[in-house]
Nucleic acid binder design. Structure first.
Lengths: 237, 237
DNA sequence: CGGGTGTTTGATGTCATTCAACTTACGTGG
DNA sequence: CCACGTAAGTTGAATGACATCAAACACCCG
């Protein structure tokens, strides 16, 4: 799809006047990355806003002790970097391609100009940020009240919701070890916890393929330990 | 202080034209609450934005299994409720006074009108939300990589930073059991972990009073396990 | 075929929760 | 003023969850 046709389909660019869309179209080129390459490193002098068109992106952060935290894994329609709009020093992060990628990369200066000039765009961005805030709050909640096994179950349920699947089989979107860190646990713990939830909730796991036979059991196992009610589609995206 | 004088000192209302400030002044009355009363319950039909002038507010959420999660404890200058601006259903929460309180309570409809009409206000709100996003991200990080003991230490360090204290003694701002839930642990765990950090980092703990004798030891114990460098004042507020 | 990476499994240790008992402090009512 | 009940905090012992370390296995790719 051409950029000119793509831009208007993106929620962040909704309801913008033609001339602004045109600016975007000129400015935002699609960038391609190979799996494994580093996309962004916030020690870079130039900051960017990144919008994922296609593929998976690992967002991580270095810890003083030498380890690494996974903050998020982005997919189609996700984005990151709007916090660079803050005048105060922003928290650092790395972005890395964990699959082949198609991205929009928008320099922060351009975004800042737009935010100052166009009210509708600012509203869109505010909306985006508020949604992200909700998502983060829910993740915090899960980290503090759910067990490793439940977090895996929750992740699987969301995969189902997004793909609008009922009881079917599907593949995990990326490495198990990466998923483990994403969910705040070790790879070994993930492995054991997945085995456990398969047994408890009638899942079948074969390599990176999962088959859900009784989604209601999964919901029962997971969603008791959450403030939301299944399916929580609006919040998690 | 009168409302008219108070409003312009609040960051969220910065750089607004006089007529908008006037609207606020007319609209925003100071509300007083006694310790222990419920301020807000999102099952209420009317949604509000709350700005804390003075006191401590517990923000919590009910979990399906009957338990409760503490999302945050607000203090002077903190606020909550901007997510009600979203058109989609927002996540519920409770707000409760854990000390005597002075608040601004602003109906969401008023906020929405302002966001639609005044660009500067929208910018201010965007800024607020971005800051909050950073804070949430850091808390997520802490929940997934820090031990209970380290999270307590981190909390204490932030107290010190906020109060611009070096090595001194101070009182915990609210109940230990509440602080425990705030930090995602049981009261018993908190008790033991506090004892541990006192021993490791030369703190003295007497009832709700704490004395920090070697802030560098505390920093060393905690800040190794974080992506930020001490003092991380801009981020945590 | 050999080496690398990702995954699983087992043994063990550490950390946090649970449950129960007990202390202390505080407020109420006799 | 004292007895009593209540709530918060501490402590101990038992259990459970997760991390760690080490080893084995599968798979892919050169």
């Amino acid at each position: 799809m051409s950029v000119a046709k793509l831009i208007p389909t993106i929620e962040l660019f909704a309801k913008l006047p033609a001339n602004v869309l045109e600016q975007f179209t000129k400015m935002a080129k699609v960038h391609y990355y190979k799996k494994g390459t580093e996309i962004f490193n916030s020690s870079a002098s130039q900051k960017f806003f990144i919008y994922v068109l296609k593929g998976w992106v690992k967002i991580s952060r270095d810890v003083v002790d030498g380890s690494e935290v996974i903050l998020d894994i982005l997919n189609n329609g996700h984005s990151i970097g709007e916090h660079f709009l803050l005048e105060t020093e922003s928290q650092p992060y790395h972005a890395e391609a964990i699959s082949d990628l198609e991205l929009f990369i928008i320099p922060i200066d351009f975004l800042r100009r737009l935010v100052n000039e166009n009210h509708q765009f600012t509203l869109n961005l505010l909306n985006l940020t508020l949604q992200r805030q909700q998502k983060l709050t829910l993740e915090m909640e899960h980290l503090s009240i759910q067990s490793a096994t439940q977090r895996i179950g929750c992740f699987l349920l969301r995969l189902c919701t997004i793909k609008k699947m009922g009881n079917t089989s599907f593949r995990l979107p990326y490495d198990k070890s990466l998923l483990a860190s994403r969910l705040g646990m070790r790879a070994e713990t993930f492995s054991r916890a997945l085995a456990k939830i398969c047994q408890e909730c009638e899942l079948k796991s074969d390599d990176d393929t999962l088959q859900i036979n009784a989604i209601d059991k999964l919901v029962h196992y997971v969603c008791q330990h959450c403030s939301q009610t299944y399916p929580c589609k609006d919040i998690m995206r």
